[in-house]
């Protein structure tokens, strides 16, 4: 796996992400500055990390989504390359048009920063093959704008095509209003694009990958990506 982590001004989770990728793959990811117009040769995974690109000015992710490197990412994705966006990265992917919908202000207006449970909806994708379908994992969230919204038709298609990969749930996997931390449509925590090669998710799997973090439930995502890409290589 040869991964590239994008770096925008105001991003602050890029090193956590790089560490998780290094742990899973044994290879050092390339850190790619937003002003670059191309990705390193041989890149097979692009990661858009979390943080507060451009101070969340205008709308979360709006300015980063229009930066030069994103044209290269759009082309990379159009060629079938894998793209993972976490938290602000999810917001950037939505703003860039790589994923449908938008992340709105949390329904109860609070910044939410604690562990949540996610139900992995299917295991037959590069982003979930490290888990079993229906498995519940515990990972942290840290966001003020994670309330996924899209028009009815888009939501219907996401559900119909099985493109919701991660959903907020109870510790035992029940989905409902009480466990839907930010008011997201259908308790959506993570979705893929139509082709299935671009994932955006609000929670931070990269922050639950080592014993010292108190939980290693996030490992499966990175282990799955590594297995997928190393097999393809």
């Amino acid at each position: 796996m040869k991964s590239a982590v994008l770096v925008f001004p105001g991003i602050n989770r890029e090193r956590d992400m790089a560490r998780a990728l290094r742990l899973a793959s044994g290879r050092e990811p390339a850190m790619v500055w937003h002003a670059e117009t191309s990705l390193p040769a041989g890149t097979d995974l692009v990661v858009v990390p979390g943080g507060f690109s451009y101070g969340d000015y205008l709308r979360c992710g709006a300015i980063a989504a229009r930066s030069p490197v994103m044209d290269a990412v759009r082309k990379f994705a159009a060629d079938g390359g894998l793209v993972l966006g976490v938290c602000n990265g999810f917001q950037i992917l939505c703003e860039s048009g790589l994923l449908p919908g938008v992340l709105m202000r949390n329904a109860r207006l609070k910044f939410i920063c604690h562990d949540v449970h996610l139900r992995v909806e299917r295991s037959d994708t590069p982003f979930t093959r490290g888990y079993n379908a229906g498995q519940v994992i515990r990972v942290p969230v840290a966001h003020g704008e994670g309330n996924y919204a899209a028009d009815e038709e888009t939501i219907r298609r996401l559900e119909g095509d099985g493109r919701v990969l991660y959903r907020y749930c109870s510790p035992t996997g029940e989905v409902g209003d009480t466990h839907n931390i930010n008011g997201a449509a259908q308790s959506i925590a993570g979705i893929v694009n139509e082709r299935g090669n671009v994932l955006g998710m609000m929670p931070h799997p990269e922050n639950h990958v080592e014993d010292i973090m108190g939980c290693t439930d996030g490992r499966g995502l990175f282990a799955g990506l590594t297995a997928h890409l190393d097999r393809a290589a």
């Binding site: 205008l58 300015i63 938008v102 709105m104 028009d151």
Partner: peptide, 9 residues
């Protein structure tokens, strides 16, 4: 269209 508004919402 390009930046000021997100025409999805």
């Amino acid at each position: 269209d390009k930046l000021l508004a997100n025409t999805v919402i």
